[in-house]
Each structure stands twice: as C-alpha cells, then as structure tokens.
Computed example of a mutant assay.
Amino acid sequence: MSAFTPSSQILQRHESLFSGKNLLVAGDFHDDYMLQLDTAMTKVHCTLFHIYSHLNDRRQNAVIEFGLLPSESCYNNTDTLIYYWPKNKSEAQFQLACLLNHLAKGTDVFIVGENRSGVKSAETLLSDFGSIQKIDSARRCSLYHFQAESRIAFNLEEWWLQYDLHFEQFNLTVCSLPGVFSQKTLDVGSDLLLNTLLEQTQLIKGRVLDMGCGSGVLSAFSAKINPTVELVSADVSAAAIAATQRTLQANHISGEVFASDVFSAISGKFDFIVSNPPFHDGKETNYNAAETLIKQSKTFLNANGKLCIVANSFLPYHQLLDDNFKRVDVIAKTPKFKVYLAC
C-alpha cells in the first residue's frame, strides 16, 4: 500500500480543500492516503477487512471503523466527505444513499473514482438531490464536488436482495446486498461446485470452513447437505458478512460468521475447506487471496482434511495446488471452470 492509487493521486492535487476539515472517508479505497491529510479530524469507514487492518496499524490520530455502514459517531461534526467510487454502481447507490441520509445539510461531498468504474454516472445519480460539478480529471479518474440540497431516504431493509435455489433434497434462500458477489443469481462457477458436491456429499463433514463466503451459498448448502457440520464462514467484505449471516438465518442454520483476510482471523483446524476464491481486487486481476488460500490451507486442515475450490480454467492454480498438496484431482470441469479437490 505504499503507492497511492490514481484516485488518491487526483485528490493530492486538491489537498488544500481538506485542510482543517472534519473529514469522513468512505467507499472503495485501497491505500492510506487519507492518513496524511492535514485535517482537524479524520474518520475512516472501511468495508474491507484487509484495508481496515492495514489502516488500523497506521491510524495515527484517525478514527478507523469496519462494518457494513458507518456508525452514528462517524457523522458527528463531519463537514466533509471523500467518497471513493466502487466498481459496482449498485454498491455506490447503496452506500451514498446511506451517507447522504445521515450527513448534515451543507456537508461538502467529494466523489472520486476511475472512469472505467463508472464514476461519471455520479452526475446523473445525484443531480436530483443537489448540485454536482466535475472539478478535475486526471489519470483516467474524475473528481466531483457535490452538496446535497435535499435528503436521500434510506432504509436498509429495502436494499436486501433475495433469490431461491432448488435442489432435489432441499431448497435454499439466498440473501444478498449490492456489491456482494453473485448478488442477484448464482454464478456459473458456484453452480458447478454445488452440483459436484451433490455427487460427493461424503466430503462435507466435521468442521467446515467456507472461505470467501460471499452471500453464504456454499455455507448454507454445506449445512443442508450435512446438518451435523460445525460451520465457519469468513470473508473480507462487511457486506458479505452481513449477507451470509442473513442467508444462514433465512435457512435456519447456525454457524460462525466473521471477517478475516484469508486466514488472518481463523483458528483451529478443519475437515473440509470450500471456496470460490476471488481473482479480482477492484477492476484489477489479483491472485493474492487465492494463492494465500492454497498455500496456507494445509496448515488449517486436519489429517485427511480436504480443500475444494472452483476456479476459471485459465487460472494457474493446478501447479500451485500440486506444489502444496500430496494429491490434487480435477473432480469436475467445463470449458470455463474446474473444480479441484486437494488433500
């Protein structure tokens, strides 16, 4: 995190706007630029646990918070917001609706993001609620200034998404939020993984870890296949944590759900680790989480424990699995995806 992202670099050109302010920083940021600003107070709301952990180590005088939405204390005395636009427009709508509902009237709002992430849609998204102007454009990013002249209503319950999955033995209700992977329908990779596990239900036993749980599909499925499992679900995303908790609740399943940067907050050993690991960080391809999962899984597996992942066929995981496990099998594949079982 030593180098600043293009979004932060464009903010650097306007640092004087934040001098002496009571600042709140929110959205999809991936550096610690905000900690160097000369503000009266800096509050940072993180929705990603690995970013929160990094900032918490360097907090200086800033207040750093992790969660789905900012707490009330984040808004107290805040006169300026910097919002980093995420890759997902619906996630931006969700977060901004909450922020602009809670911020005091007259708060200066600065919205920054990469053009390819759709930050330009902020102009139409917010035009009905106040005046918005583009104040800079550089490094393929845009920076906007906005002042809300009217409040945007926000009710968290209205943002929940839900769909049902039907299997021969049972049905599942999946709950999700904007920005969570497979928020509206089951993705193709997870579908292949679930159907593969339906044919090998003996794999799902004992203590089970769903790493990168997303909306909790694999977690709920595992508990439905074998109600005796001790279920643990983890993700870096606060929205994913909330979605998995709600999915388990909707299906009357109990389990531990918490934030972890891969294995950073995991303890104990497991009989089965299952994952559809991400390979993107924002818009960028990033194998770090999957590589860490593969390299460290063996430390968290019991004797005869197994790791099962689904991945795009083009991803270079087979060799990495071979380097770290005694036996690796491809137990299902399509032209686009493979399901690996390592033990």
Rank of each mutant, 00 (worst) to 15 (best):
A62T: 04
N302I: 05
Q12K: 15
H252C: 10
V25D: 02
D322E: 11
I204W: 04
A242S: 13
D322G: 03
I51A: 02
Y33D: 10
F94E: 02
V217H: 01
F18H: 05
T5W: 00
A26I: 01
F49W: 15
F49I: 00
P70V: 04
V25I: 10
Q200F: 05
M1N: 15
A243F: 01
I64C: 04
L209S: 09
W159N: 11
A290F: 06
L307H: 06
I273H: 07
T47V: 08
G106M: 13
A153M: 14
D329M: 08
L48K: 02
L192G: 08
G118R: 01
D329F: 09
F258D: 07
I135T: 09
I266Y: 11
I152E: 07
N195R: 10
L307F: 14
G214F: 00
L231F: 07
L23P: 06
L100D: 06
K89A: 02
D261Y: 01
F263H: 05
T334K: 06
A290N: 02
I204D: 12
E91D: 14
D28S: 12
A242R: 03
N195M: 08
P6I: 03
E91K: 04
L172P: 06
M34L: 13
G189A: 06
W160C: 09
N155A: 08
D164N: 14
C343Q: 15
N77H: 10
L301C: 07
N22K: 15
S71K: 15
S176M: 06
Q249M: 05
K306V: 13
H166L: 12
H14P: 08
L17Q: 13
F94S: 00
R59E: 15
K43V: 09
S176E: 02
A238I: 04
L203V: 09
L315S: 03
A303N: 13
H30N: 13
C141Y: 01
H166N: 13
L69Q: 11
Q169C: 02
F18K: 01
F154Q: 01
A104I: 10
Q147N: 13
I253V: 14
